[in-house]
Amino acid sequence: MSVPGRMKHLESVISVCLLAVLVLIGIGIFVKQSDYDVTRYGVPPSPGSGETSQQQDGAGQSAIGAGLAPAGFEELSKAKSYNSDNLYEKINGKAPLYTESGFKELFTQRFISTSDPNLWIEFYAYDMGGVKNAFSVYSVQKRAESQPYPSIQIAYKTSNALYFVHGRYYIELVGSAESDELFKAVTEIAGNIQANLAVDKDADMAEFAMFPRENQVADSIKFYLENAFGCEKLTNTFSARYKIGNETITAFLSKRADSKEAEAVSEGYLKFLIENGAKIKDTTNKTIAGRVVDFYGATEIVFAVGPFVAGIHEAQSQASAEKLAEELINKLKSINNE
């Protein structure tokens, strides 16, 4: 059997290539093995505490915790930060609410009164990546029995806590007791955050001004990133509540890329309602003819104005719903013509 010279050369080249591939595979296995995630196999990285190595001391990583301690208070715990992988270690089952709304990072820290160990405050700053995301988690968790907190534009307080939106951050300041001294400290921390934590201004919240002002319930605006009123097509939707007579009505609007998309979403929501049992109602208002439905006794209206999808949700009175719809249409038309 003879092996020509060029064949021998070819064999050598192939052999070297094969050896190189094997070496690369070996290196790959070695690298992957050193980065091996045992948790994929149900093995706890730190089974005792449930606090994994991913949880980090936030001190030094961010200026958020620095300089926040109010007068008469000191650090009770070091600042800590959590990412979307380990947020559950801090808030367990509530983590998906944030991670599904653009969550980036959570910074937390506790401060305790130097005079009364029963008085302490926990500070949470959720970086939601954008003001709309921050407003979304703020608004969907808003407590029914809250009180306004006029010092901050988007804020409310309860008897032991203060909640507000600061740029892309959703902030919670939770006190351990109902106490004037504690709440004074809470407001001081809030002031420190506003003074020290630089953020972009709320340019993205122009929708606030797009709702008619008359009869609007104060601080009732909410923002749904997804699934507004249970409809998948209704994303990035703002809602506001109105008190008309004895009735509370919800108006909603969502700005889309263009009028074509707005029309499609409007049709999609109408179809969703009808598929779920809604029936078209007669109306004398030609602008919304065919867009008013009875949904198990409540009136729903949906329409498109330029790039906006808007409408009325769960109104008991068709007349009130149509009146508010008309005001909303006029407002959106004027904005669209500007």
């Binding site: 509530k94 407590r143 029995e145 309860t158 032991n160 806590a161």
Partner: peptide, 9 residues
């Protein structure tokens, strides 16, 4: 607002 809550309300 469970399971963490945060407010007495």
């Amino acid at each position: 607002n469970g399971p963490t809550g945060g407010s007495i309300s």
